[in-house]
Design a protein around this nucleic acid. Structure first.
Length: 486
RNA sequence: GGCGCGGUAGCCAAGUGGUAAGGCAGAGGUCUGCAAAACCUUUAUUCGUGAGUUCGAUUCUCACCCGCGCCUCCA
């Protein structure tokens, strides 16, 4: 297969990712600032990164992935104060919540899940180097990056020095900066705020320095791939580049991967509009993790995603089509006569090729799903025609397993994850537990009724079962198949 | 104003210089005791608008309209 192409924000074009070698691919992702629960926009990014990473692994790459949590910042301090928490305590609460959301959505554990406060010394040391090399200066106990000392500033976001100055002047001039574009690396201590010692006095790190320092700490001065939300391009990632490259002189990141914004009902998500959703908001409404994951993964990362409740329902229906097909394969696949086997295996191979090619083309998840569904239709048709051989069924099941290893949407673990999530978060799930005893009893009675062709009783029992939350389907051979009602 | 992304059927959405993947929803049919599921057929003579290049454009160029993001700490 051709090399994996990804859009690189820095060059503004598709670029081939280096091929897999024995050397792991170094990848850094800007994670959450833990002042509150992560919202679905955050998780859109993390799911896109997750799909990318799982795809890379399936293509033979080794990964060294770093995901950071920002656990010291203005907003955390402010929210902690409002909530009556200590700052560390507040951050810990939401860091834990993030990890719960991560597990619920099946996000891959990165090789390093790192926190800013665990790397303060390294940040101080880096500030020191920036000062020593003339790229930063001390002003009233704070340290600022001297943008004028880094001519390449603005390359990532396509901004020129002049427009940056115009933008910056709008801001208040209270800070003691040489130049309006300069940004803070280290904030001097203020009463009532956490602080760490430094050569310039107590204080805390600025936002941008943490990512440069932690990325280089785990991945080296120059690494392969850096991901994050599109809104981080400027200033955050621009500043990361400046902080790193000003000292090292090396190209900080080869490939910048940005995930577009998420809208809700075509509007920017905001608390004031009442369209702001955290993961737990949706789970509490009975949304399945697999459906949420499907929706967030189904739109390619470079396109903005319009999140709607209708979209969630459509996603849930699409997931059911996939799992329904898999169930059919498992039920029927083994008992069919093996005849003309090779033709049926052919469409699985085609689907796999198209699927891989789509993902390799800038992670085109929509096209990749198209390939999967084309196989589903072909497979269902073969099953209907009684032409599904054991070999073809196995090939299709293998492909579905491979597919789900990347997309993670078939929902096999929904129930277990929801249970663990409810336990961990104390969240009450709206989905009522099934009364299995009552269901089993009615299924048995219905089977008996059907055996004696008492269809009115059978239909009555089907209605009762629906009340109990399950849909019954009569499969050929008189067998009853049931599933949880949507 | 600057930089960037996007406007494809009721909804979500792929895509190509040669005539529109896929999913959801809808309609008809097959199957079924009835259903469900599945399958088949059907639902955009048309891809924001206008002009241009071309034998031919949704795909290239230009202009315009609309939506969205960023422009100093928001994923």
């Amino acid at each position: 297969m051709a090399a994996i192409q990804l859009y690189n924000t820095l060059s503004r074009q598709l670029e081939a990712l280096r091929p897999p070698t024995g050397e792991p691919l170094g990848m850094y992702t800007c994670g959450l600032t833990v002042y509150d629960y992560g919202h679905i926009g955050n998780f859109r990014t993390f799911i896109a990164v997750d799909v990318l990473q799982r795809f890379l692994l399936s293509e033979g790459y080794q990964l060294n992935a770093v995901l950071n949590l920002t656990d010291i910042d203005d907003k955390i301090i402010e929210r902690a104060r409002t909530a009556g928490h200590g700052v560390g305590e507040h951050a810990a609460i939401y860091a834990r919540a993030f990890e719960q959301d991560m597990e619920l959505l099946g996000l891959r554990q990165p090789e390093h899940l790192v926190r800013a406060t665990a790397h303060i010394e390294a940040m101080v040391a880096w500030c020191d180097r920036l000062i020593a090399t003339g790229h930063a200066y001390i002003s009233q106990g704070s340290v600022y990056f001297r943008v004028a000392s880094f001519p390449a500033y603005g390359a990532l976001s396509g901004k020129d020095a002049e427009s940056l100055l115009v933008g910056a002047r709008v801001e208040s001039g209270l800070e003691q900066k040489e130049d309006a574009r300069d940004f803070v690396l280290w904030k001097a201590h203020k009463p009532g705020e956490p602080s760490w010692p430094s050569p310039w006095g107590p204080g805390r790190p600025g936002w941008h320095i943490e990512c440069s320092v932690m990325a280089m700490h785990y991945l080296g001065a120059s690494f392969d791939l850096h991901a994050g939300g599109a809104d981080l391009v400027f200033p955050h990632h621009e500043n990361e580049i400046a902080q790193a490259e000003a000292v090292t002189g090396e190209r900080f990141v080869r490939h910048w991967f940005h995930v577009e914004f998420l809208l809700v009902e075509s509007e920017k998500m905001s608390k004031s509009l009442g369209n702001y959703y955290t993961v737990r908001d949706l789970i509490a409404r009975g949304v399945k993790p697999s459906a949420l994951r499907y929706l967030l993964a189904s739109v390619p990362p470079r396109r903005s995603l319009n999140f709607t409740h209708e979209g969630l329902e459509q996603s849930a229906a699409a997931v059911e089509r996939l799992t329904g097909f898999r169930d059919r394969l498992r039920r029927n696949g083994e008992n069919q006569p093996p005849a003309g086997a090779d033709r049926a295996v052919e469409w699985v191979r085609t689907a796999r090729e198209n699927f891989r090619a789509a993902l390799a083309d800038n992670l085109n998840t929509a096209a990749a799903l198209g390939a999967v569904f084309e196989m589903v239709r072909a497979g269902n048709a073969a099953l209907d025609a009684g032409e599904m051989t054991a070999q073809a069924a196995r090939a299709a099941l293998d492909f579905l397993a491979y597919f789900d290893g990347i997309f993670g949407v078939l929902g096999d673990e929904d129930e277990a994850r929801l249970a663990a999530y409810a336990l961990g978060t104390g969240l009450e799930l709206s989905a009522p537990a099934l009364d299995m005893a009552a269901i089993e009893a009615r299924l048995a009675e219905r089977a008996a009724a059907r055996a004696r062709r008492d269809y009115s009783r059978s239909d009555e029992l089907r209605r009762e079962l629906e009340q109990l939350g399950v849909v019954v389907e009569d499969v050929k051979g008189g067998e009853q198949k049931w599933r949880v009602k949507k």
